[in-house]
Simulated scan of single mutants.
Amino acid sequence: MSEPSATTLLGPAEIRRLAAELDVRPTKKLGQNFVHDPNTVRRIVELAGVGDDDVVLEVGPGLGSLTLGLLDAGSRVVAVEIDTVLADRLPATAREHAPGVADRLTVLPADALRLRAADLPELPTALVANLPYNVAVPVVLGLLAELPSLVRGLVMVQTEVADRMAAGPGSRTYGVPSVKLAWYGQARKVAPVPRSVFWPVPNVDSALVSFERGDAVPEGDRAAVFAAVDAAFAQRRKTLRAALAGWAGSAANAERILVAAGIDPRTRGEQLTVEDFARIAAAR
């Protein structure tokens, strides 16, 4: 483990001071709710299990609460921030509150949804972030596809999103995010996060979701498999024979493909694993 670095984490007073200095008014559009509780930050970092050997990708660092915790754990941090005002201030915050480890921080003013491996100074091993609920799933899926080096992660998202990300077949919350995440590995809902640790206080509950990339992905072309998943859940109350009719060209074609894949055409998408969808795509 790294030596103690005399890092001071941000509390409510520091968060409000920084926001006032920057004239930052948190916006719903960017999903900005800043964590102001140091104990919550410490818990997130501990659950993420990151340390000296990790390059952590943090999406949406905001005012830097979690960034400081990650630096204190000894990790190198690449922080991707779409708000240029926040991105410009973050290095100074690191120097002020974590002087011994501030040089381990790289800040990229960029949109995580458009991030490419070539944009990064080094390939990250872990994703740790407080994600806006409206882009959480596309950000995670996009980064897993673009960055094979990401072997694990811990993200804070809206509880409803967390449930969908971590759901298994047969669950009422199982759907497109569940299946697509399962393509890469295993997602698990870890713990709730109280509303009181945020400023401003959100009107939704939050939770932590952990992720570990699997040793191997299912066989098949990812784009083809994901197209089948999208089609199956676009009409999730219908049987797969009906739901996949447009994707397959007709209900008869869908039935033929399903039978060839060893799937009962009367089944619904919520009952299938990602491996089942891979067989369906391969049988098309």
Results as ranks from 00 to 15, higher is better:
P4S: 03
P4D: 01
L9G: 06
L10Y: 00
L10I: 10
P12Y: 14
E14K: 10
I15V: 15
R17N: 14
R17G: 12
A20R: 15
E21P: 05
E21V: 12
E21I: 10
R25H: 15
R25S: 15
P26Y: 12
K28I: 10
N33E: 13
N33F: 10
V35E: 02
D37K: 09
N39S: 15
N39V: 15
N39W: 15
T40H: 07
T40F: 13
T40C: 13
T40K: 10
V41A: 04
R42Q: 11
R43K: 14
A48G: 08
G49A: 09
V55C: 01
L57V: 08
G62R: 11
L63M: 06
S65C: 07
L66E: 01
L68V: 08
L68D: 05
L70T: 00
L70C: 05
L71Y: 04
L71I: 04
V77G: 00
V77P: 05
A79N: 05
E81H: 11
E81A: 05
E81F: 08
L86S: 01
D88Q: 14
L90P: 08
L90E: 07
P91G: 03
A92K: 14
A94I: 02
R95D: 11
A102E: 04
A102G: 06
A102T: 02
R104H: 11
V107M: 06
L108P: 10
L108A: 12
A110S: 13
A112V: 04
L113H: 03
R114S: 15
L115H: 09
A117M: 12
L120S: 08
L120P: 01
A129H: 03
Y133V: 07
Y133Q: 11
L141S: 02
L141N: 01
G142W: 02
L143E: 02
L147N: 07
P148L: 01
L150V: 02
V151P: 00
L154F: 06
M156K: 02
V157I: 05
V157H: 05
T159M: 03
D163V: 13
M165F: 09
A167D: 11
G170D: 13
R172D: 14
V176G: 09
S178Y: 03
V179Q: 00
L181Y: 06
L181N: 00
W183E: 04
Q186F: 04
Q186T: 15
A187L: 06
K189E: 13
A191C: 14
P192R: 14
P194W: 13
R195H: 11
S196D: 14
V197A: 09
V197E: 11
P200Q: 10
V201S: 12
N203R: 15
N203M: 13
A207D: 09
R213G: 00
D215I: 10
A216R: 14
A216H: 13
V217Q: 13
P218L: 00
P218Q: 00
G220L: 00
G220W: 01
V225C: 00
A228Q: 03
A232H: 00
F233W: 03
F233M: 04
Q235R: 13
R237E: 02
T239I: 10
L240E: 04
L240G: 07
L240H: 06
L240I: 03
L244A: 09
S250R: 09
S250H: 10
A251W: 02
A252G: 15
A254C: 09
A254E: 07
R256M: 12
A261L: 02
G262M: 10
R268G: 10
T273F: 07
V274Y: 00
D276E: 07
F277P: 03
F277K: 01
R279W: 01
A283P: 04
